[in-house]
Design a protein around this nucleic acid. Structure first.
Length: 534
RNA sequence: GCCCUCGUAGCUCAGGGGAUAGAGCAGUGGCCUCCGGAGCCAUGAGCGCAGGUUCGAAUCCUGCCGAGGGCGCCA
């Protein structure tokens, strides 16, 4: 990597000053403005004080020493501002990036090894199977699935799962609600009032067990809706199966053996305050019934068999649950960092200018499937992924639907489709892409061409950042920039025109192919289709 | 009351120690001689408030204001 070359040069020039620095102590960053070069380092600002130097003077000394040493691909160095060292590189460094992209291709470019030898288990959505998935839940689906793809690209052995709460009070209430509707009675108190309950009740075969049938009906609905958005799971983990395996008893006796249980007021408590929880939590109620927390602990314990790092993606309304689960996992011998909860902010849905409250129980809701039907799977998924999971997201269905031709996802997909179109048109005109002549890439000097290459050069670090920060939206941001770069190139730089110099044409054909790789990789990580035509 | 998020352009959001804070939408004005105009180019406007740390703060810390969420022997 070019940054290593530059950082090494800085380390070397510090050695001249008899200062030992490690390579990773040098930060290289991309200046916000082109006028500040291609790469920049702030070492002089960081180190000057402790060395008793003035930053600018230190920077100048370093630059002088690097100039004497001559660094490959560096055209110019300068000291700027308070003491930044700016590197202006020969465009060749980007041509080298392009060769990497082409050699590594779709399968290999922007693949990182930061997760090599590590495994991660990701649980997301896990909405109760008591009705269709509402449009807020779609966010966790898009997020979790893309994050899993990013983890895999970074070398993590990744498994994904959906925890199916297929036993307990909610499922019973749901079954009872179905039965009530079926028989034309009012639903029970705290039952499910949504319209879908009546519709489903009509579908229910005469002798079906409403609980069993209802669960399957809901699960199918949820599974199909997510699948239509390209969200799938490695495992649908059944709570019922877990409980009947005896896992609850096992986990309770382990916790008892470790001394984490205490009896009080006839109930059995877990001393989660020992690990920072606000209060201890009841495991077994005074009536002898275990709380939901027990199977949850058992389930999380089981997940450690599928990943060294266990991650839950939870809605903001569940954040209070994290300290107790974290406490329980530590009691079972897992280091604190082995369990991670990602708290996502909720989605506000707007239709006809009004906020829609999302509640399965009261039935005022917008289903994921409705959203997808209204705007299409790619628009929906991209909308979910466009924003940081920390941001409360407002999705205005009318705006999304009316943006039919201006939606950001089309902007991106159109770029990919244009690439395919260039290929088709080339075929018609009998223009072939000949084996890559690395030397001819030096003809790529147009600002539009360089811009594409700059974009492509950042993709590997963007993927790593997205994994490290659990932030798929960084890919969404990147791909929009990439699309802008490509559209600009397409507008200004003809590829197939007959009067184009042949070597330049070849170089551009390869640049188009490199762009395709970038789009294909990032669209795949986002889980969005890469169309050949619109 | 305590705890967790979040306040950036008219709207939806990027940017999470670095130099002049970006994009889309909406507005205005341009660009069809040849690969797809779902495109390109130009243009106005912004870091909730107040302190602090730092050579440097939209970014880190504290307080206040505002928004959402959480504080059951519910799940």
């Amino acid at each position: 990597m070019i940054t290593d070359v530059l950082a090494q040069a800085l380390v070397n020039s510090f050695e001249v000053l008899e200062i030992e620095l490690e390579l990773d102590e040098i930060q290289m960053e991309r200046p916000a403005s082109r006028t500040h070069g291609d790469w920049s380092s702030n070492v002089a600002l960081v180190r000057a004080k402790q060395m008793g130097h003035v930053p600018r003077e230190l920077a100048e000394t370093l630059v002088r020493s690097m100039q004497e040493a001559r660094i490959e691909l560096v055209d110019k160095m300068e000291v700027a501002g308070p003491g930044f060292i700016n590197f202006f590189l020969s465009p060749k460094w980007l041509h080298q990036v392009m060769i990497d992209v082409l050699e590594l291709g779709e399968a290999g470019y922007a693949r990182s090894a930061i997760g090599e030898g590590k495994s991660v288990n990701l649980e997301f959505v896990s909405a109760n199977p008591t009705g269709p998935l509402h449009a807020g839940g779609g966010r966790w689906g898009a997020y979790g699935d893309s994050l899993a793809r990013i983890f895999r690209r970074c070398g993590y052995a990744t498994t994904t799962e959906y925890y199916v709460n297929d036993r307990g009070i909610q499922t019973e209430l749901f079954g009872a609600s179905l039965m009530a509707r079926r028989e034309g009675r009012d639903i029970p108190d705290d039952g499910y009032a949504g319209e879908y309950v009546s519709e489903w009740a009509d579908e229910m075969p005469p002798n079906a067990d409403p609980i069993v049938w209802g669960l399957e009906r809901a699960l199918t609905e949820v599974r199909d809706a997510l699948a239509s958005m390209n969200v799938t799971f490695d495992l649908w983990a059944s709570e019922k199966a877990l409980v009947s395996s005896g896992a609850m008893d096992q986990v309770i006796s382990r916790l008892r053996a470790e001394g984490w249980l205490v009896e009080n007021d006839g109930a059995l408590w877990l001393r989660t305050t020992e690990f920072g929880d606000e209060k201890d939590r009841v495991l077994v109620k005074s009536d002898g019934e275990p709380t939901y927390f027990v199977p949850d602990i058992a389930y999380h314990e089981q997940k450690f068999g599928r990943g060294d790092l266990v991650i839950d993606v939870l809605g903001a309304d569940h954040h209070g649950y994290v300290p107790r689960m974290s406490a329980a996992m530590q009691m079972l011998g897992h280091p604190p960092e082995a369990y991670e909860a990602i708290i996502g902010q909720n989605v506000t849905l707007v239709r006809e200018g009004k906020e829609i409250q999302l509640s399965k129980r009261t039935g005022t809701m917008v289903e994921v499937s409705e959203l997808i039907e209204a705007v299409g799977p790619d628009v929906a998924r991209f909308a979910y992924l466009l924003q940081s999971i920390d941001t409360r997201q407002t999705i205005d269905i009318d705006v999304l639907a009316s943006q039919a031709n201006e939606n950001p996802v089309y902007y991106v997909q159109y770029a990919h489709a244009r690439i395919a179109s260039v290929g088709r048109e080339a075929g018609k005109r009998g223009i072939e892409r000949l084996p890559l002549m690395p030397h001819s890439l030096e003809l790529l000097t147009h600002e539009r061409e360089i811009e594409i290459l700059r974009c492509l050069s950042t993709l590997p670090e963007i993927v790593e950042l997205a994994a490290r920060d659990r932030a798929p939206h960084r890919l969404a941001t990147w791909i929009r920039e990439m699309a802008a770069a490509f559209h600009g190139f397409y507008h200004d730089c003809p590829v197939l025109r007959s009067d184009l110099e042949k070597d330049l044409q070849q170089a551009r054909l390869w640049l188009v192919e490199a762009s395709r790789v970038g789009f294909a990789v990032s669209l795949d990580l986002l889980g969005i289709e890469a169309p050949e035509q619109m």
